[in-house]
Design a binder for these strands. Structure first.
Lengths: 210, 210
DNA sequence: GTCTATATAGGGATAGAC
DNA sequence: GTCTATCCCTATATAGAC
């Protein structure tokens, strides 16, 4: 049973963090929800931060995967869609992290460094893809424009869920809200696309107006 | 002395919230810092949330001012710069609010509604300015592009400080970091500007590359 | 592995003296 | 207005029995 309980604690913690926000979930809440004693929980994990770190490791591994860029050929817009879906689904799965990002990272230096590393990887991925699109003639932008746009892509993606939570009335997001975020990112690069692709994208995006 | 203490509590709370994050500052900390007793603090304010609400009211009033759009004439780029400065300085003054935005608003329905109202006003202000720039011939974009861009302007502005904190290594931001955020917003609308203005803006922005 | 019981610490908040 | 003293409650974490 040991391994199962250990795993169940992680899963339940993730679910509760996502539902209520990490600061609002105590180790007692988690134990209660699982129907185990607080002492038992502390047998499996040293403390709450330990649980957060384990969850972060999973997040990190998944995001590293999502940020991989197809090698050996120039990217196209389909690649961008796919990658954005992978990234947004990863963010959604570990959304508790994004909800209280600054606070969580400020309490744990290691996590802050690791998250900064992910952002750096994401920046280089975004820049690489945009450069590839430019090389393929799908997009037209100067190096400066690409750098600035990549930065805004990171920012919008990172905080889309927070923005949505604060802007919208409904408490929980749906798959459709995620897609809306993806469009919001795509519209950052739309102005630099060839006419055909830009018009196509704008048409698609209309379906997701708030 | 009564009025002075009441006011000093607000000022010290704001400073400590900004420096340490609102969740990490207790009423006892505030009283200690002021050199008064916790009981005295509770004489002036019902609870911590009361303090947060008073600070929010000041934030709200100042942001409402910053969001006013010049009436009776079409806007120009100078107006945009000025307004962004006012908005960013307001956000900076009350940055504790933005640091833990989702958590703070989730604990207080009134604040959530009032913040949503501000965002709505900001959206209509941004849209109005962009439309005005289009009308003045400074900018060229479809109604859909304007709407999407206004949304991204809000998002980037709202979370710029968080993004900067999480991305950069240095803990506290400076006036220069604020200016960087303003450029980041300006670069959202750059692709839609007339050639002369776009080139000028891109040149200016280079000085603020990270 | 799991439980019960408990230690410790801290935060929010109030009563009553001055 | 201000302080001291205190209460209540909750959260983290550990010890020791089963």
């Amino acid at each position: 049973m040991s391994k199962q309980t250990r795993e169940r604690i992680l899963e339940t913690s993730l679910a509760m963090f996502n539902a209520l926000g990490e600061p609002n979930v105590t180790t007692n809440h988690i134990a209660d929800e699982l129907g185990i004693s607080p002492g038992n929980l502390y047998y499996h994990y040293r403390n709450k931060d330990d649980i957060v770190e384990r969850l972060f490791a999973r997040y990190e591994a998944r995001m590293d995967q999502a940020l991989l860029v197809p090698e050996g050929r120039l990217p196209n817009l389909e690649d961008v869609w796919l990658q954005l879906h992978l990234v947004f689904e990863c963010m959604w799965t570990f959304r508790f992290l994004y909800r209280d990002l600054v606070d969580i990272l400020s309490r744990n230096r290691k996590l802050k460094q690791r998250f900064a590393r992910i952002l750096t990887r994401a920046a280089s991925s975004a820049t690489g893809v945009l450069k590839g699109l430019a090389e393929a003639g799908i997009l037209r932008a100067t190096a400066d424009e690409i750098r600035a746009t990549a930065e805004n892509v990171l920012l919008v993606a990172t905080f889309w869920l927070n923005y949505h939570a604060v802007r919208g009335a409904r408490p929980e997001a749906t798959q459709e809200d995620l897609t809306q975020g993806i469009y919001q990112v795509m519209l950052l690069i739309a102005p630099f696309l060839r006419d055909a692709e830009r018009l196509h994208l704008n048409t698609l995006a209309q379906a997701y107006r708030r």
